[in-house]
Nucleic acid binder design. Structure first.
Length: 265
DNA sequence: ATGCCGTATGATATACGA
């Protein structure tokens, strides 16, 4: 089973690079974030044509929005109304074999890394705290959970191009890393990308649009993640970040993360 | 950490991304 997570930064603006990606990598499950389209405006037909029979979408106007496309049957699961808001940042589904998949778009958090001064940063921290509490409630032996998405935190030193220069930049502040550590501990999550690339090596999934040459400047961050519970660790086969997608005509600023599992959900 | 790019929107500027 090939699983992909990709912050697409507007699904309607990205059909060509998505089609190229699907042709090249043939994912079985495709999790999108920042679709930026209401459910009515979502280009569903395009995805059905790509061979995904099963899907869940959760969109809103202009902002946020998540979607899951699957070649295997999925059943939508109930989830909390995070931070007392109706923004569309999370979808949870169950596969027939009991595996549960969570697709998250954690708030970006604005510019100022101080919850007193910046409501968006406060929202980001509160969101992670709520998610942690929710997963803590669900702890049980042998849960087969997968969590993917744009978590908007680059936790390790080698998840950013300069640990020192980004310590006060939202996405890599110690406060955010603490919140992410708490979230990881809430269900013994395993950082599946780092299972394949050790923390001693650089690993990024996002590069700003503003660099003249994103590859050359390579000022990236690992904001996109795939986590699994221990029961699924033996099924991890390989991981790729598809840099070719970042090179596409009109690309998303995030690259897709591809994870191969030795399992059929 | 600046850059000054990209997307969406009742829009010809503004909010937001990170």
């Amino acid at each position: 089973m090939r699983l992909v997570t990709w912050n697409i930064n507007s699904v309607r603006a990205r059909l060509a690079p998505i089609e190229t990606f699907i042709k090249t990598h043939d994912p079985d499950i495709l999790c999108l974030q920042e679709t930026k389209a209401t459910d009515n405006d979502f280009p569903l037909k395009f995805f059905l044509k790509q061979g995904f029979e099963h899907y869940e979408i959760a969109g809103q106007k202009s902002y946020n929005g998540v979607a899951i496309f699957s070649k295997y049957p999925i059943t939508k699961l109930d989830a909390p109304r995070w931070c007392d808001k109706d923004d569309k940042r999370h979808l949870a589904v169950r596969f027939d074999n009991g595996t549960v998949l969570h697709n998250f778009y954690i708030p970006a958090g604005g510019d100022i890394p101080d919850p007193e001064q910046n409501d968006k940063f406060a929202h980001k921290l509160a969101f992670m705290t709520e998610v942690s509490a929710w997963f803590k409630e669900q702890q049980a032996d042998n849960n087969k959970f997968i969590l993917v998405g744009d978590l908007n935190v680059a936790p390790l030193e080698n998840d950013v191009w300069s640990h020192k220069q980004l310590l006060k930049v939202v996405s890599h502040t110690p406060t955010e890393v603490d919140h992410m550590d708490e979230m990881m501990a809430s269900h013994d999550w395993i950082d599946a990308m780092r299972h394949f690339v050790p923390g001693t090596e650089r690993l990024y999934s996002w590069w700003s649009y503003r660099a003249r040459d994103w590859r050359k400047s390579n000022k990236g961050r690992r904001l996109d993640h795939i986590w699994v519970t221990p029961a699924l660790k033996p099924a991890l086969q390989s991981m790729t970040i598809d840099l070719a997608a970042r090179d596409a005509e009109k690309p998303s600023d995030h690259a897709p993360v591809i994870m191969d599992f030795d399992l059929i959900p």
